[in-house]
Design a protein around this nucleic acid. Structure first.
Length: 561
RNA sequence: UGGCUGAUGGUGUAAUGGCAGCACAGAAGUUUUUGGUACUUUUAGUUGAGGUUCGAGUCCUUGUCGGCCAACCA
């Protein structure tokens, strides 16, 4: 059995990154060592797109007996903060991965400065006094070559002095930069004398006020990889043009030859995935916070009740390629249901109550029924639920004029109340507006679950709660954040396409067990969906987030009719 | 108009010159005290045109279409 699973696992096709790693291993590269890194910038929260990268980086290393460093790419002190560092570490751990070492690009600022000096000495970098606007003009366009800066031919000595002056805070912010001397006519715009260092009198979350010059991404990332001796530096496709620079630095600095490989980032339907846009949603209060359950952030998904297993399973299924993609959010939801179905406790909660009176049941009697906690897991045992004369059922489980294939309640029809009795509806009570206010039913005395001798077969089974014991709870029903599949691809502002009904708050009536269930229990409200207790809950008022609804075939049938 | 990069069912992903497969979604059915789960069956695909080859999704030529690149962001 184990052998079978092992061989099936081996049969799963390798993605192109794994193929590269296997080739390198076969060739004996780096002595068979594999070391990757996950390099977030601590300027926002991690989202499901990062999860794809995390699973790839940690997954590949794990698979080939290597390790993964967690490295914060903290070279821009203006936008970065320790708050983000903590959330990122928390999210990576939540996903179930363990980094080999925790590093920061800022750990290497001294070394980076030294390397920059080396470049200057080799005549491959110079200090430029051009203001930003003029530099942009001289840069040219993709179709027209740029023009050399008038400062391009300063002597090594002068450059060395000026660069040191930059470091010592002798020049104003923005007044000077250190640039690589490559080729202002290069077809790749990034090779047109890219900026290596800029002056910023900003407080850094780790180095404080030690530095007033900070390296750019291109002069920090590859070098950090080299310092850590990363063997495979995996990033997303936007960085493909940077690879030329990455390799240029390694070659001219003579440092460890890490290699960069690119895969395409994840796009998910009905949401946005850029930190800039997510930050806007938070700042403009379209959502409550970074961990709002509607957000595609890992913290949002965690709060919503998604599990790490589900997220990892999703990342496994979507694969790794260089193709532009837009993954159906339905696939994510499938993965969530798949896991939750196996582990969630079943509970009965009525979201939209309709009162039912069992007219032939004693007034004050409450009767114990037993119901399984999870039919998928025999180990999970059973719990007690109380049956009584007055109950609530779901309003949508009753119809006055039902179609022939409606298996639920209607006048004259019978249904099973889950884990309790079969009942028959005898009468409908309405208010003056004609709204149904109450159902009068009778129960079949010898039809109790597990001791049913009635011989009656019913098509439908409903969830219910006894009115007397019903616990009111707040339930937050979430819908997709946006109304269109790909908000970023639409005309105008992406925020114009927000779904105004992405959150609906209701009061539901729950069986009492919910009160004592563990705070982090994953729960299925039977026939409705998976729910998870929100951190806003208090002892007086429980709050539940709908993680995802159950697949609902009846809804499909009903809308078709 | 330059450079880079990509194109396989509705979506995502396999195939490494040799039977186009898998998953999600869709459809039909079986089971079911959740119209859930499970199980069975099924619809649907190689970007166009040429070429090489016994044989092309794969190699070559040439179109078409998508994405990325002109922050002192990463």
């Amino acid at each position: 059995m184990t052998e079978l699973t092992a061989s099936t696992a081996e049969e799963k096709a390798l993605n192109f990154i794994e193929q590269i790693v296997e080739e390198d291993l076969r060739a004996g590269k780096h002595g068979g060592r594999v070391l990757t890194r996950f390099p977030p910038e601590p300027n926002g929260y991690l989202h499901i797109g990062h999860a794809k990268s995390i699973c790839l980086n940690f997954g590949v290393a794990q698979k080939y007996g290597g390790g993964t460093n967690l490295r914060f790419d903290d070279t821009n002190p203006v936008t970065e903060d320790t708050e983000y560092v903590e959330s990122i570490k928390n999210d990576v751990q939540w996903l179930g991965f363990h980094w080999k070492e925790e590093r920061y690009a800022s750990d290497y600022f001294d070394k980076l400065y030294e390397l920059a000096t080396l470049l200057v000495q080799k005549g491959l970098a110079y200090v430029d006094d051009l203001p930003a606007e003029q530099m942009a003009t001289l840069k040219g366009t993709p179709t027209e070559p740029g023009t050399n800066s008038p400062y391009r031919n300063r002597t090594v000595t002068e450059n060395l002095e000026l660069f040191e002056g930059m470091k010592n805070g002798q020049f104003a912010e923005g007044s000077r930069t250190l640039r690589a001397k490559i080729d202002m006519a290069a077809p790749n715009m990034l090779l047109r004398d890219p900026i290596l260092y800029r002056i910023k009198f900003a407080h850094h979350h780790r180095t404080g006020d030690k530095w007033c010059i900070y390296p750019m991404y291109d002069f920090a990332h590859g070098q950090s990889d080299a310092i850590e001796q990363i063997t495979h530096s995996i990033c997303t496709m936007e960085f493909v043009p940077h690879r030329d620079l990455y390799d240029w630095c390694i070659e001219n600095l003579g440092i460890f030859p890490s290699k960069q490989y690119e895969f395409s980032r994840l796009n998910l339907s009905y949401t946005v995935m850029s930190k800039r846009k997510l930050l806007q949603l938070v700042n403009d209060a379209h959502v409550k916070s970074w961990d709002d359950p509607r957000m595609p952030t890992l913290s949002g998904m965690r709060r919503r009740g998604y599990t790490p297993q589900a997220v990892r399973g999703f990342c496994e299924r979507i694969g790794i390629t260089k193709n532009e993609n837009l993954i159906d959010v339905g696939l994510l939801e499938f993965c969530v249901r798949e896991h939750l179905n196996k582990i969630a406790l079943r509970r009965m909660v009525v979201l939209d109550p309709l009162k039912v009176v069992i007219t032939n049941y004693p007034e004050t009697q409450l009767e114990i029924c037993h119901s399984e906690n999870n039919p998928e897991d025999p180990e999970s045992g059973t719990r007690e639920v109380l049956f009584g004369r007055e109950l609530y059922i779901e309003r949508e489980d009753f119809m006055e004029n039902p179609p022939k294939n409606f298996f639920r309640l209607a006048v004259g029809k019978m249904v099973r109340l889950k884990s309790a009795y079969i009942i028959q509806c005898n009468e409908v009570l309405k208010d003056t507006d004609g709204n149904v206010t109450e159902l009068r039913c009778s129960y079949v005395e010898n039809s109790k679950s597990s001791q049913d001798t009635s011989g009656i077969n019913v098509k439908g089974t409903l969830h219910w709660v006894a009115a007397q014991t019903a616990l009111p709870v707040e339930v937050r029903l979430y819908d997709r954040l946006f109304q269109v599949e790909n908000p970023s691809a639409e005309e105008g502002d992406f925020k114009d396409y927000l779904n105004p009904n992405s959150l609906q708050v209701i009061t539901a009536y729950a069986e009492p067990a919910l009160q004592t269930d563990a705070a982090d229990a994953k729960i299925q409200f039977m026939r409705k969906g998976y729910f998870y207790k929100d951190s806003d809950s208090t002892p007086d008022k429980l709050v539940f987030n709908r993680t995802v609804g159950l697949k609902d075939n009846w809804a499909k049938v009903a809308t078709k009719a």
